[in-house]
């Protein structure tokens, strides 16, 4: 027998070649906005992750905060102080450091809620699409009802319920987790619906039937064959959902039902700044606002490019 023994190395090289020649890679380097977005997103994410190291002050350390330095404008303005590049907030915290730490919280909430949503939605979508029948009807009815309300309202409601159910001080302590759960619950429907319709399209394809003819049990067919084939759209939704989750978190915090001022996210900072808007201290809300938009925009740009790149019809 002249059978070629394949080493792992060979197969690895082939994989790499596939990726490099692949259309995704190609379209990425062809799209300036995708590269730009990737750079910005990476910079934002890295600076948020390493915020405790990069930021000049620790805004949570009360010993470093001096109320005398409250509401200083950015350093390039006449009354600005060289110590505070972007100025300070109403409590004298360095705005630049606060923004870095805030972005860290925003990203944490975003990623955590997207992952929970994704797992929940993809799981329910797979079951709904593959099993069909009554299970499908029940899951999809719930999804329909929820979908008729905007995500922000669902998140508000979930947050409201926790607020009523938990005592005030406990709620502040758990605010981070409450908001993650609230956003996660508000987002699963998109995944479930997309995965379900992809599964319905995939499961009548002959490769799934081939698995049935072999005698494979359903869960192997679902996990090994169908799941990898429906992950494309899930990836796109996940990216766009990340941007949305960051925005929802900011919105909730801005409305005063998100993260408390003691551990401010970008939205909380904007809320704080909003109260000083009319007295001329515009920087307290403007700089966190810019940070938020840059973050959301770069993630959205990535999602937009990903969607076009994964959609063969648009090429």
């Amino acid at each position: 027998m002249s059978s070629v023994k394949l080493t792992r190395m060979q197969s690895l090289k082939r994989n790499l070649a596939n990726i490099k020649n692949g259309d995704l890679w190609y379209s990425f380097w062809r799209s300036p906005s995708a590269i730009f977005a990737m750079v910005i997103a990476l910079v934002s994410i890295l600076s948020a992750v390493f915020a405790p190291i990069i930021s000049p002050y620790n805004p949570f350390d009360l010993a470093q905060v001096d109320l005398m330095d409250a509401s200083l404008p950015p350093s390039w303005m006449a009354e600005g102080s060289e110590n505070y590049f972007l100025g300070t907030d109403d409590q004298g915290r360095d705005l630049f450091s606060t923004i870095l730490h805030g972005a860290r919280l925003s990203l944490l909430v975003g990623f955590a809620s997207v992952i929970i949503s994704l797992v929940l939605g993809v799981g329910l979508g797979l079951i709904s699409g593959y099993v069909g029948g009554r299970t499908d009807v029940i899951i999809m009815r719930i999804a329909d009802v929820q979908l008729s309300f905007p995500a922000i309202l669902i998140a508000l409601l979930v947050d409201g319920i926790f607020r009523v159910a938990l005592p005030k001080d406990l709620h502040d302590l758990l605010a981070l987790y409450v908001i993650i759960v609230a956003i996660a619950i508000s987002g699963w429907v998109q995944y479930a619906r997309t995965v379900r319709s992809s599964v319905m399209a995939e499961k009548v394809k002959e490769y799934v039937q081939a698995g049935q003819v072999i005698g494979l049990p359903s869960f192997i067919i679902i996990l090994r064959h169908i799941l990898p084939n429906v992950m494309g759209p899930v990836l796109v939704i996940g990216t766009i959902h990340l941007a949305l989750a960051i925005i929802i978190e900011a919105t909730l915090s801005f409305l005063g039902v998100g993260l408390p001022p003691t551990t401010p996210s970008l939205g909380t900072l904007i809320r704080i700044g909003n109260e000083y808007l009319f007295s001329g201290e515009w920087w307290i809300s403007l700089f966190p606002g810019i940070a938020l938009v840059v973050l959301a925009l770069s993630v959205n740009l990535l999602g937009d490019w990903l969607r076009d790149a994964l959609n063969p019809k648009l090429r």
Binding site: A243, I247, A250, T251, F254, L255, G267, I270, N274, L277, S285, G289, L292, V293, A296, L297, V299, N300, L301, D304
Partner: peptide, 15 residues
């Protein structure tokens, strides 16, 4: 429009 989607409503209002 992409910027529009990335701009939270409350921020548009503030601006």
């Amino acid at each position: 429009s992409l910027i529009g989607v990335s701009l939270p409503t409350f921020l548009i209002g503030i601006l």
